[in-house]
Nucleic acid binder design. Structure first.
Lengths: 221, 221
DNA sequence: TCATGTGAAAGAATTCACAGCA
DNA sequence: TGCTGTGAATTCTTTCACATGA
């Protein structure tokens, strides 16, 4: 509807958190309202921050009352793209891949890992969390017309770029990259990196001497 | 030595990336130099950005030449706290926990998961990646004088806060939290959250309509 | 009185642009 | 010429503060 204006990335992160919080509240009391202060306190943000963020969603609050939990939740769902189903292809059935496959939360949230690829002959053909592992060489054939929306890369660093290109070749619009390697892709493709080593390193730095900056504390990496 | 001035969090993230890149370069040619442009190009940052970041490390560059790979690498190692060993306790031997236990990269980087706890009787006593799983009720006894530096929480959301408090009770200075729940802890404890659902959601949002903002593309979540 | 929505102010982070050194 | 280090300018984000509505 609105949402022409582009939403800043820090705000999008927080919108996801609001969405989750509202979902939990809604399950308990679907008629509830929450003020920006309540929502902020629950997540560690200021009330002003919450209001500014929610302004991107629309004018949904009622002065003196707060926000309708249900209304806000529904609107966030739409804006965050959670009102549709997402199909993802996973490449790499190693430890991280397996963890993702068994992550129940994804299914609940309409993220479906529909195909799994690997290049290890010992793994190909086996079944992991009810999905059978396909040969990586079949990637193009399997995904050509599958309309897969997202790719998840969980392969060694040196293979990541090539896999990314193949995934983009079959039309995925976004990539979740677990390999510790920057992917060079066209700007029309969204890439998000998850890098455990990097995250641990950030933590170590903070503990080491950066006598932890409180403002950053809850920071979602 | 220096490093009294607090380094901004975005800079710390990039310093880790520089450190990794320099390590790879160093392995090939330990006498190499790199300019801020070369380093930036490799990682997708501007040369000015690189120089600003490296200014926090000290005045290590040589005009007309660049930075000595070895010198810069060594200095970053110290600043990032990588010149020492880190011991971590893992709580939760589920899928994520197992993936972390088998993640080879950690050992190489001097991060050692020395204890593993779970509350599942079927898992307790078993061996995962050469570490035997301890009963969560033994946490305090096991860690009391162990001098463990970091805690890794990979338990269901509803247990996360309690585990965090127990870990802090035995003296860990930092927590890596995989549970989709904000931890309320004293500000002297560093917390970093890794939240797959949140990350996938960010990606979905970008793909959905936020016709991917190029500036954010390589963003490490 | 309580709480939203939003301009204005402040604060952070990035980019620019250039003096100065090798 | 090539490249660093850094103030100045710019852009992005958060916080403040208050007019307005219920």
């Amino acid at each position: 509807m609105d949402l022409k204006a582009k939403i800043p990335s820090p705000t999008v992160k927080r919108l996801s958190l609001y969405f989750r919080e509202l979902g939990e509240r809604r399950a308990v009391d679907s008629d509830a309202t929450m003020s920006s202060r309540q929502l902020g306190d629950a997540l560690g943000f200021s009330d002003a921050q919450v209001r500014k963020d929610l302004a991107f969603v629309g004018q949904l609050g009622h002065p003196g009352v707060g926000y309708s939990v249900t209304l806000l939740h529904d609107n966030l769902r739409r804006i965050l793209g959670r009102d549709r189903s997402w199909e993802a292809a996973l490449v790499g059935a190693g430890n991280i891949g397996r963890a993702l496959l068994s992550y129940r939360r994804f299914e609940v949230q309409n993220f479906h890992i529909t195909r799994v690829f690997d290049n290890n002959p010992a793994t190909i053909g086996s079944t992991i969390s009810e999905r059978s592992v396909l040969d990586i060489s079949e990637l193009e054939r399997e995904l050509a017309d599958a309309g897969t929306h997202l790719g998840i890369i969980a392969v060694p660093a040196q293979d990541a770029q090539a896999i990314a290109e193949r995934l983009i070749g079959v039309g995925v619009g976004g990539i979740l990259n677990f390999a510790p390697r920057r992917l060079e892709v066209d700007e029309s493709v969204a890439v998000l990196n998850v890098d455990f080593s990097l995250t641990l390193e950030q933590l170590a730095f903070q503990v080491n001497l950066g006598r932890n900056d409180p403002a950053r504390e809850g920071e979602s990496s």
